[in-house]
């Protein structure tokens, strides 16, 4: 069994997939930390679903399957989706969560219609486009991984250079604006990174699940630390580990899909964090409460003894 798994790892294709999934987990973990703290986790999900019609239209217009073109299409439709959400929340009484739900499902619906249309028409190279629904990491090739290396490098460098700015933006955007930071630009930049991550991730994980990689590692990381810097690093690490575990399980055991396995791996990390994190975890809290209660009971008991008439009588004797 172990022999088999390591022999599979020497296959260059598998190595590309491994690196790709790891990088995807890394960048979505980093960007996800900020979107989570800005309470915009659902934006990632909306962007991912909104990307589908963009990808389909890009394919229908050009007839070729190329990542940069899909990126463009997904970017435009993602932009349109966020614009729509802004318009709906500003000019109607509909709140942001409902607006996101509406936009997400409309765009996804259009995407599915277009996808079905493509599959039933005479586009030559259409095979594989439906893989964008749930992702197919196995279809990743070297050039895709190069794109991922580029995108994740940009995200890592930008997040460390602009760490202070992103922190302030996430904690107190009003104060940031007061200090003169271009809050709108920084917000757009973060949104742009989210779109990049989502689109890069769609191929491996699919539009339906890619948001999980943005949200889950960040939430898990929050359990382990009260420092933003460490949280971002941990979140990236959790994401990368999830990607690696997902790839390993999918390539070594059976023909299980890599993307969903990565998402499940991230979920395992999350559940473990919820239960066993040292300060905020469920177990730590329970232990603290039990100890606390016991200490209080003990103190009360001592007080009772001290104030009981028997005790006083003995005292006076």
């Amino acid at each position: 069994m172990t022999l088999l798994s390591w022999s599979v790892l020497t296959d260059p294709n598998t190595q590309w997939i491994l690196i790709g999934c790891m990088l995807l987990g890394l960048m979505s973990g980093i960007i996800g930390s900020f979107t989570y703290l800005r309470k915009q986790s659902l934006i990632g999900d909306t962007l991912a679903h909104a990307a589908l019609p963009g990808i389909c239209i890009a394919f229908m217009l050009t007839g070729v399957k190329s990542l940069p073109l899909f990126f463009l299409g997904a970017f435009v439709s993602g932009l349109l989706a966020t614009l729509l959400i802004t318009v709906i929340t500003r000019y109607t009484r509909i709140k942001a969560d409902a607006a996101m739900g509406i936009v997400l499902s409309v765009f996804f619906g259009i995407g599915i219609v277009l996808l079905t249309h493509i599959q039933h028409s005479s586009y030559g190279n259409q095979s594989g486009l439906d893989k964008f629904l749930f992702g197919q990491a196995a279809s990743m090739i070297a050039s895709d991984v190069y794109t991922m290396i580029g995108v994740s490098a940009v995200i890592v460098i930008a997040s460390s250079l602009l760490f202070k700015e992103f922190k302030l933006l996430s904690f107190d955007p009003g104060f940031a604006r007061g200090l003169g930071f271009p809050v709108g630009f920084l917000e757009q930049l973060l949104m742009f990174f989210t779109v990049m991550t989502v689109i890069v991730g769609i191929q491996a994980v699919g539009v339906v699940l890619v948001a999980a990689l943005l949200i889950t590692p960040a939430v898990a990381a929050r359990y382990w630390t009260d420092r933003l810097g460490l949280m971002v690093v941990l979140s990236g690490l959790f994401g990368a580990i999830s990607g690696v575990i997902g790839t390993l399980i999918s390539t070594t055991t059976s023909n299980l899909p890599t993307g969903p396995l990565s998402v499940l791996a991230a979920t395992v990390v999350f559940v473990f964090s919820v239960l066993f994190a040292p300060q905020r975890g469920v177990c730590a809290k329970a232990v603290r409460r039990i100890r606390n209660n016991r200490a209080i009971r003990m103190a009360e008991h001592v007080r009772e003894i001290q104030h009981s008439p028997v005790y006083s009588k003995e005292e006076s004797l």
């Binding site: 703290l37 202070k164 700015e165 922190k167 302030l168 996430s170 904690f171 107190d172 104060f175 940031a176 200090l179 003169g180 930071f181 929050r222 630390t225 009260d226 420092r227 933003l228 949280m231």
Partner: peptide, 17 residues
């Protein structure tokens, strides 16, 4: 938010930085 009091106060210097 994952930060401490000192860190929040340092944010007052961000504009100057």
């Amino acid at each position: 938010f994952p930060t401490n009091a000192l860190d929040v106060v340092m944010m007052g210097r961000y504009g100057h930085l």
